Simulated scan of single mutants.
Amino acid sequence: MTIQTTKEANATVLTIAGRMDAVTAPEYEKALNEQIAAGESAFVIDFQGLEYISSAGLRALLATAKLLKTKNGQIRLANVLGTVREVFDISGFGSIFQIQDSVSAALADLG
């Protein structure tokens, strides 16, 4: 899994590619937790290049979302496609997270 971080006007965008599973999910949590510790509170997670997500990946997303909530932060997901989208829909995570079709739409949704 690779994670690229870019700073936009109103949020930090993390672009994730590859697989988010039991081996790589801690990398995601570490990356986001470091950003939160640095004072960032608005995030867009771009899943354009994500090919696979396991229950460990879903748990990592939920854990960071809960941490953000305690700090009055916000998170939006973008480009949740293919089998990753199916996992979100089947698991109910599609109703837990606000998902947009593009990074620009997710940034706009953050206001």
Rank of each mutant, 00 (worst) to 15 (best):
T2Y: 09
Q4E: 15
T5Y: 10
T6C: 12
T6P: 05
K7A: 15
K7T: 13
K7P: 03
E8Y: 09
A9Y: 03
N10T: 11
A11P: 02
T12W: 11
V13R: 06
V13W: 05
L14K: 04
T15Q: 15
I16H: 01
A17K: 01
A17E: 08
G18R: 01
G18Q: 07
R19W: 03
M20D: 02
M20C: 04
M20N: 00
A22V: 05
V23M: 12
V23F: 06
V23R: 07
V23E: 04
P26Q: 09
P26G: 07
P26E: 13
E27C: 06
E27M: 14
E27R: 06
E27D: 15
Y28C: 03
Y28L: 14
Y28I: 00
E29H: 11
E29M: 13
K30Y: 12
L32I: 11
N33A: 10
N33V: 08
E34H: 06
A37G: 07
A37I: 12
A37W: 13
A38F: 12
A38T: 08
A38Y: 09
G39F: 10
E40H: 08
S41K: 13
S41Y: 06
A42S: 11
F43C: 06
V44H: 04
V44A: 01
D46L: 04
D46Q: 03
F47V: 05
Q48I: 10
G49C: 06
L50K: 02
Y52E: 08
S55E: 10
A56C: 08
G57Q: 02
L58A: 05
R59M: 09
R59Y: 09
A65V: 08
K66N: 08
K69M: 07
K69H: 09
K69G: 10
K69C: 12
T70I: 03
T70S: 15
K71Q: 15
K71N: 14
N72K: 14
N72P: 05
N72C: 09
G73N: 06
Q74N: 14
I75F: 12
I75C: 09
R76S: 04
L77R: 03
N79Y: 03
N79F: 01
V80A: 11
L81T: 02
G82W: 03
V84L: 02
R85M: 07
E86N: 10
V87M: 07
F88Y: 05
D89R: 06
I90K: 07
I90P: 09
I90S: 12
S91C: 07
S91W: 09
S95V: 14
I96F: 13
F97E: 02
Q98L: 13
Q98W: 09
I99K: 00
I99W: 01
Q100L: 11
Q100P: 01
D101K: 13
D101M: 07
D101G: 15
D101A: 15
S102H: 07
V103Q: 03
V103D: 04
S104G: 12
S104N: 13
S104R: 07
S104V: 10
A105Q: 12
A105P: 02
L107F: 08
A108C: 08
A108D: 14
L110R: 00
G111D: 14
